[in-house]
Amino acid sequence: MSVGVYVHADSVVHRLSPGIKLAALFGFSTLIVLVRDVVALAVALGLVLMLFPLARLPLSLAWRQWRPILVVMAILAAVQLFYSDWVGAVSVVLRLSALVLLAALVSLTTKASDMIEAISRAVRPLAYLGISPTRIGLVISLALRFIPLIAEQLEEVKEAQRARGLERNVLALTIPLMVRVLKMATEIGDAIEARSFDPDDARRLSDLWRRRSEQPSERNDH
């Protein structure tokens, strides 16, 4: 599964278990929210930036992850400048940058499938509450399968409405599309049930995921 923000490299950070990375991230983010000292925040950001070479990832990737929050950060820093002083504004920028870059690093170095496996291990105790990991696996696989199906249905509806000269009307597109995909989901749900899907079967969530990513071409039989 290479979809997503994951970037492959052979490094210590990549090999760390996803559970440890997530735990470290939550520990770090709690700490950084509590820290008020601007020097400590600068050191924290420096440390996070040093993790990128350690993960054998170019700093340009850090920049690409940092850029989307630039506008929000600028607004928050400006508000801070207005209410207090430049130290406050700099603190906001440092804190947010460190937090976002470390979180991005976890996503850059952890495959989505490994992340799902870590989650499935974490939710296993929930089975006692009646939430089966297999159901979670099914629902994730279904969601990923539905995305291209919705795009397909949208094309069909667009074509039909073009014949009526309505292809630019948002409601004339959305409403038939919505009804179509709801019907499609009902049929798929019934089809899965008809094929004796047993949600309480104790198969591992990651198996479902792996099968899905290995044979994408055979999954068209809804």
């Binding site: 979809v3 997503g4 992850q65 929050i69 976002v100 979180a103 629902v139």
Partner: peptide
Amino acid sequence: LFVVLVAIGLPLLAGGRGGLGIVMGPT
């Protein structure tokens, strides 16, 4: 479910964004 998919790193947010960086960020 959608938020979990984004958090584990699928680029499903507007503008092709995704991953923990966005979910844990200012917004």
